[in-house]
Amino acid sequence: MDWLQNINFIELIKCFITGGLICVIGQILIDKTKLTPARILVIFVTTGTILGGLGIYKYLVDFAGAGATVPLTGFGYNLAKGAIKGVQEYGLIGAFTGGVTASAGGISAAIFFGYIASLISKPKMKKE
């Protein structure tokens, strides 16, 4: 448990507050507009990709760590970062391979676990 000794509380608080605030922006969108969840996710991922491409989101990631990478804007940032890295390494073809390569883990995991969940579990009614 060596990681326990080098917990950086300032880092965790920065992460908590940044992540929380990004979610609050989403909550305001949910309550103040009639956007469906899918549209809100699209807005966040596209914003993240554009900010990532412009190099702005990187500062937020440096500041907040997982507080900026775990929200879907971070997923978008990752896509943009991957695409740029792909271009640097492979040129034109990298623009097409880079983004998905960088986020392959997340996408594959979601598909795989989604399929597993559907095998073993059934939806239930919300009972309150």
Binding site: I30, K34, P37, P123, K124, M125, K126
Partner: peptide, 20 residues
């Protein structure tokens, strides 16, 4: 039926959304 109507008109039951 609540579940079949949600499925047809709205979202999957297990989606974690808030109802207006």
């Amino acid at each position: 039926h609540f579940c079949s109507a949600e499925k047809q008109f709205r979202f999957p039951l297990e989606l974690g959304n808030q109802r207006p």
